[in-house]
Amino acid sequence: MMGEFMQAVIAKYNYWIYITLMMIGLYAMIAKNNLIKKIVGMNIFQTAIILFYVSIGVKKGGTLPIVEHGHGAHAHAVHAADYLNPLPHVLMLTAIVVSVATLGVALALGVKVYREYQTLEEDEILARIREK
């Protein structure tokens, strides 16, 4: 009973990693007071999702999704079981670059907020807004 449970836990360790990272990111986004820390939390969250997707594409006994002896050997058949699932890789390839671009926009908004209120702490910003 205990052995089965442990086997189930170990067989799915990729999910535990992504859930832990996602909780860290979510907590930082909600609870942190500093806007930059919130942005870092958002990035950790994105990384968790990227890990989740990439780990879904793994196949036991599969190699990189690049067809071996691609040219000149058209005769031999390509078996899907020999290669990792390329689809999550494609989705995450674009997601990584988009996450960098959104990080840039988030930092630009942070700069803008700092210029307006001379602070990045959430409670101080709210206090300044109420003063006006």
């Binding site: 067989a11 799915k12 360790y13 793994v58 058949a77 689809l87 999550p88």
Partner: peptide, 24 residues
């Protein structure tokens, strides 16, 4: 969810075999 590295996980059996086998 399927365990890590399962070749028959739902994500790996629907569209991606088509891509892998037909790309060349």
């Amino acid at each position: 969810f399927p365990p890590l590295g399962d070749p028959n996980s739902p994500a790996s059996v629907h569209v991606s075999p088509r891509y892998i086998e037909k790309t060349m």
